[in-house]
Every structure is written in C-alpha cells, then in structure tokens.
C-alpha cells in the first residue's frame, strides 16, 4: 500500500454530480486512477458508468465537482494525445463508410497534435506497429466494413494505441462481439496493462469476463459503492451483493 501511494495520480474525480434534465445520474463521486491501474467501473444498466467516463474525458461537463487529468484541471488540459478513448458501440459506424483500416488509424494519428509530430514515413510505420500489437498487421489495406465486429474493435484499439497514450478509457468495448473474441480482447488489454504499463479504465457490466485482468474496481450505481483494490473487493459486501444480484449493483432497468 505504501508503494501504491507513490504512484502518480493520472485521473482524479472530486465530488462530481451530474443530472440529465433534473434526473440525477451521478451523486458525489470521488475516484482516483493511478499510473498502471487497470480499473473496472462496474454497475447495472443506467447506473451512470458511461456518464462518468464521458465526464472524465470532457465530453460532458459535471453539474458539480471537478476532474483533473495528469494533475491539471480538465478545463485547462490540452495534452489529449496522452488519452485514448473508445466509446460504447464504436463499431456501430455507418456500414457504407468507405474507409480502410490504415485510413482509420492514419486519420487519428495525423489529427492529434503532439510534441513530436510523426513524419510521413513514420506514420506508416506506426500504423503497422499498432496493427501488429492487435494481431491485424495483414489487414491494413482492407476495408473497415469487411472486418468482423471483433476485428473492428481491435482496429479501434490499434487506433488508440498508435498515438501512444498513457491512459486508455473504454466504454463497454465488446458490445455485440462474440464471446471468444471478447476473451481475446480482454487478454490483449491485460497484456497491454502488464507489459506496456498502460493505465486502463474500463466500463463494463460484465464483471466476470474481466476479473482476471483488473487490479482495481469501482462499483457504481449513481453513487460509488466501492472503490479500491480488486483483491479487497472480493472480500467486500459489494462483491457478495454483485454475486447475489443485489439490487444496488445488478438491478437492470428493462
């Protein structure tokens, strides 16, 4: 725990509340992410997971509270190349969209301003490198809509990795992807976290499939019910409630 405290805090959420048209979605959330963490934000549908993630990357402004990225207030933060983000249903793009795998990655790589902008030859190299990491180096020229859902998801990871972010935030990244591909996908995330020390924040309602890889958990249902070490989480009341389908954590609003 002493070591833990020395790690750099890369995301800090302080007293954040948010409401959609007066319907509260998040109430007084305090949460911090440290370098090297693999944090899973779990909770039932409608628990505010996506809202919290969107607030962390500045897509939504909190009604109350503040967010810091790399110790800078989010309002002043401009080093977005350090953040990779993959939203929910990212693979639900327009199927008529004519774009190759390499173009998907190049568009982001060339757009994002960073201290050292890669030259033209480097761009090509970085694209192939990122595709190699996700095991798709032979698909660079293929059209995005000719790939399977699982492959498309990997391309989006490659896109995020190509800009060499320090934190990767993902929102239910495997919705609509078959189970074996999901497992491969989370294995890949685990590998990136362990080998490349990439900090990962993952929103998911499927705790079971990620629990081998994560080291921190945040249990959310409008309020934060648990936030801490994964190992301790497994001993906690929140975990028992999660397993037993307790209404705080599991209740589905269908």
């Amino acid at each position: 725990m002493i070591l833990e405290n020395k790690k750099e805090e890369v995301i800090r959420v302080e007293g954040v509340s948010f409401a959609y048209e007066r319907v509260p979605a998040l109430v007084n959330i305090n949460l911090s992410v440290h370098r090297g963490d693999f944090l899973a934000i779990v909770g039932p549908n409608g628990s505010g997971k996506t809202t919290l993630l969107k607030i962390m990357v500045g897509l939504l402004k909190p009604g109350q509270g503040r967010v810091w990225l790399f110790q800078q207030p989010l309002e002043d933060f401009n080093q977005w190349y350090r953040i990779g983000y993959i939203q929910q249903k990212a693979t639900n793009f327009d199927q008529i969209f004519p774009i190759s795998v390499a173009e998907v990655i190049a568009a982001s790589l060339n757009s994002i301003s960073r201290p050292q902008k890669p030259g033209r030859g480097q761009v090509r190299q970085k694209i192939l490198e990122a595709l190699r990491t996700v095991g798709l180096e032979n698909e660079a020229g293929k059209s995005m809509n000719s790939l399977s859902g699982g492959q498309q998801q990997r391309v989006l990871i490659a896109r995020a990795l190509a800009t060499e972010p320090e934190i990767l935030l993902l929102d239910e990244p495997t919705t609509g992807v078959d189970y074996p591909s999901q497992e491969n996908f989370y294995d890949l995330l685990g590998q990136l976290n362990r080998q490349k020390h990439l900090t990962i924040v993952l929103v998911t309602h499927d705790y079971g499939i990620v629990n081998r890889h994560i080291n921190r958990v945040a249990c959310l249902n409008q309020k934060l019910f648990y936030h801490g070490e994964h190992a301790e989480f497994c001993q906690s009341d929140s975990f028992r409630e999660l397993l037993q389908g307790g209404h705080h954590l599991i209740s589905h609003r269908h």
Partner: peptide
C-alpha cells in the same frame, strides 16, 4: 483531410482527441 475524416468517421473520439 485527416481531421475531416476522423471527425466524420468517429465524432466522439475526434472530440476527445482535442481537435
């Protein structure tokens, strides 16, 4: 061109990338 493609293909990710 790259920014236009990024924004048209994936507006949310483009927004987070700070363009």
């Amino acid at each position: 061109l790259s920014r236009f493609i990024f924004m048209t293909f994936d507006r949310e990710a483009a927004s987070v990338s700070g363009i």
